[in-house]
Structure formats: structure tokens, C-alpha cells
């Protein structure tokens, strides 16, 4: 059962379902890297989900997932190319395997298939925007916290003379921070059944 709460949190794939965790924990170790991830995810969701929504619901689940992935794959190429123009290409290149991972994680998400259920256009667009904004905000918060606490810097500028918690710069620290953030954000919206 999905947690009750605002649409912004209920459809947050990272905090309520744990998707994109590898990208968030390994690559989003700074605000810049988190911004790159957010940009590509937003691009993917805004262009590929509405295109896939045109597919009739009677189409079998594996075919729907496949069509989504192919569409997202085609959108992914211009997304990466535009990211290379907007950000430092060497920083985009560092993402490596974590960018294609965004395509696959969205395909895994049950919430994404929920988004595709036919409804009013405004409602669909609101769901899509909340879903995208929720995950991107979570990426940015994680990136900021990890850069500040793990390296003592923000956007490359020194904030603390030494890193307060160097562990957070490593993937294992990233996952601990992700779980803590997820628990803190989702706890107030837990259903009675989940809390039992």
C-alpha cells in the first residue's frame, strides 16, 4: 500500500520505493552531480512518459515496459547530449553506467505505470510533474548533504575546513544517508497498516 501524503511524496520513486538508489548513492556525491542526474531524469520523464501514455492499457505488461524503455532510450540520447552542453562534459562522462540506469529504474517503477492510466490531461500532467519534481528534489538534497558533510565543500567551494563525516562521500555512506532521509520523510505519511 502506498503511504498517504502529498502527491509530491507519494510518487517519489527514490524515497518511497528505493529506486535510483545506486545512482543517488554512487554518483550523486556532490550538488553538481545531483543536478546532472536530476536534469537527465526530468528530461526522460517529461518526454518519454507522455509518449508512452498514448499506448492502450490492454497492451500486455511486458510490451508496455518494452515500449517505455525503447521510448526512454530514444529520449535518453538527446538528454545526454544536451547535458553535455549545459554541464561540464567531463562531469557528465563520470556518471558512466548510472545514466542508463535511470531508464531501467523508471521501467521498474509501479508508480510509473500508474501514471499512464488514462485520466484528465491536467491531472496526468500534475502527477507527472510531482513525480519528477519529488525525485529531483531528493537527488539535490542528497547531493548537497553528501558534498557538505562528506567533503566539506559546496559546488567546489570550501565550507568546512575538514570534512565532518567523510563516510558520506563513499557509496556506503550515501546509502545510509538515503535510507535515513527516506525514513524521515516518509514516516509521517505511513499508513496504519504499514505501521502495524
Amino acid at each position: 500500500m502506498k503511504p498517504k501524503g502529498t502527491l509530491f511524496l507519494r510518487r517519489n520513486f527514490l524515497l518511497t520505493e528505493g529506486l535510483y538508489a545506486a545512482a543517488a548513492c554512487c554518483f550523486a556525491d556532490s550538488l553538481l552531480h545531483a543536478a546532472i542526474l536530476s536534469y537527465i531524469l526530468a528530461f526522460l520523464m517529461l518526454f518519454s512518459v507522455p509518449l508512452t501514455a498514448l499506448l492502450p492499457l490492454r497492451v500486455p505488461f511486458p510490451v508496455r515496459i518494452l515500449v517505455y524503455s525503447v521510448t526512454a532510450g530514444l529520449v535518453y540520447v538527446p538528454a545526454v547530449m544536451s547535458a553535455r552542453i549545459m554541464f561540464d562534459p567531463s562531469e557528465v562522462g563520470k556518471a558512466g553506467v548510472f545514466l542508463p540506469l535511470l531508464i531501467l529504474c523508471t521501467a521498474l517503477s509501479e508508480s510509473c505505470t500508474e501514471l499512464l492510466v488514462p485520466k484528465k490531461l491536467t491531472s496526468f500532467l500534475l502527477s507527472l510533474f510531482c513525480c519528477m519534481a519529488g525525485v529531483c528534489t531528493a537527488f539535490l538534497i542528497l547531493g548537497t548533504l553528501r558534498e557538505l558533510l562528506g567533503s566539506g565543500t559546496l559546488l567546489g567551494r570550501t565550507v568546512f575546513p575538514s570534512a565532518p563525516v567523510p563516510l558520506f562521500a563513499a557509496p556506503c555512506g550515501g546509502i545510509i544517508l538515503t535510507v535515513m532521509l527516506s525514513a524521515a520523510v516518509c514516516a509521517p505519511f505511513r499508513t496504519e497498516k504499514e505501521a502495524a
Binding site: 511486458p62 545526454v80 547530449m81 542508463p100 521501467a107
Partner: peptide, 24 residues
């Protein structure tokens, strides 16, 4: 490499969808 990654994802999921439909 960008296109290779995309084609790799699509190809793997295409094969999976074929197997899934066969299982169905």
C-alpha cells in the same frame, strides 16, 4: 557508447519481453 548503451538496454528488454510473452 551512448547509442550502444541504449541499444543494449532495448535489446535485453526486447529478449525479456519475448520470453515473458512466451511464458504467458
Amino acid at each position: 557508447p551512448v547509442w550502444t548503451a541504449v541499444i543494449a538496454v532495448c535489446l535485453t528488454l526486447l529478449l525479456t519481453a519475448a520470453v515473458d510473452l512466451l511464458l504467458r
